[in-house]
Design a protein around this nucleic acid. Structure first.
Lengths: 188, 188
DNA sequence: CGGTTCCTTTGACTTAAGTCACAAAGTCAT
DNA sequence: ATGACTTTGTGACTTAAGTCAAAGGAACCG
């Protein structure tokens, strides 16, 4: 994947960054390929990159009393980052690839620097962050439901997750035991 | 509270908005006073204002199966908004005053318009949203704990909440029944 | 191909937290 | 104060969901 491919991919995401600003964004992108299990972001470390998934999938999780608590999954076309990356804090979460993946990596510092002079880039950043915050609100809502309804909700809202994620990771994401998820699923 | 007072209050918040940009921000602020129970934002409505609490407190909640689920409390010096306000969507939540309050109201449209030419305002917006997103992450973590630990955590992290919020609202915020909270509390 | 190992299913039992019901204590207006 | 209303506390019981344990399946490797 070269600069041109990256540019096309970014354009496909329908952002409002165009023309010169887009060229400048592309200039802080690089294309990388990593294998299943690779960690994009690690708990406790500052991590200066954002990623865009071209191909593959990832999960984010933190450890609570030794157990993985999965907070989200990401697939093709989605932005992978944690709020810590934007804030410049050490990350609370680990982001790990579920499959071999092709990614566009963006250096946050460069990207933020661009936003100073390019209002369209600043807007893009705000838009991503607002979107992520709304997503987090939806997760809180999800967790407030009884477990069976959590599954039904995700079955409805993000059926693709069920195809690509292990029962163990999905159960952790839904905040229930693997056994409970297995039972809910077998009861159709 | 006049323009000058507003300016001083904003400066006290230590933002990086200064000089002319600050004057422009102040120009889209107005000062209002409302009584306990007033609703700053209502579920299902678009709401074009942000609020800064000068004096008083507020809670945000949504209804789930007829019951209030409280998502946060805000006190003096805090920004009150929902992500829907930033995104321009109808709100998922209702924000209601817990006490009579003095507030600075900011028109989001004006504020956003300012951010186009004032990078410092754009940064401030992003900063607020990032902060809110990190806060939402902490709520998700809170909800993943067993109920007793949730109470202990809040006792540790935000003891002022316990003084100013009813047991009913606190229980709803902590995702447990009033009875459970009452028992946890009486067991010290 | 057979043997590890990992992932999922199923069953029996436990437990954390909720519900229901009622009592006690506060708050407020007349 | 007195009574009406709201908020908080306690007890008995129920239930949703977790834990533990064992057994099938699928995928992985020499």
């Amino acid at each position: 994947m070269n600069q041109n491919d990256i540019q096309n991919f970014l354009q496909g995401l329908q952002s409002q960054v165009n023309g010169d600003a887009l060229d400048e964004v592309v200039a802080c992108c690089s294309f990388i390929q990593l294998t299943r299990g690779a960690k994009l972001i690690e708990t406790g470390k500052r991590h200066p990159f954002l990623y865009l998934i071209v191909q593959g999938s990832a999960k984010s999780y933190y450890l609570s009393e030794g157990k993985e608590v999965c907070t989200w999954f990401a697939f093709e076309g989605e932005v992978v980052s944690t709020m810590s990356t934007f804030a410049g804090h050490p990350s609370n979460e680990t982001v790990e690839l579920l499959e071999d993946a092709a990614l566009i990596r963006i250096h946050v510092k460069d990207f933020k620097a661009l936003s100073v002079n390019r209002a369209s880039v600043a807007r893009l950043i705000t838009e991503w962050v607002v979107e992520h915050a709304i997503f987090l609100e939806s997760l809180l809502y999800l967790q407030s439901l009884p477990v069976k309804m959590r599954y039904e909700h995700i079955l409805e809202a993000r059926p693709e997750i069920l195809q690509r994620v292990s029962l163990t990771d999905l159960a952790s994401f839904l905040g229930m035991s693997r056994e409970s998820l297995s039972r809910i699923r077998s009861a159709l």
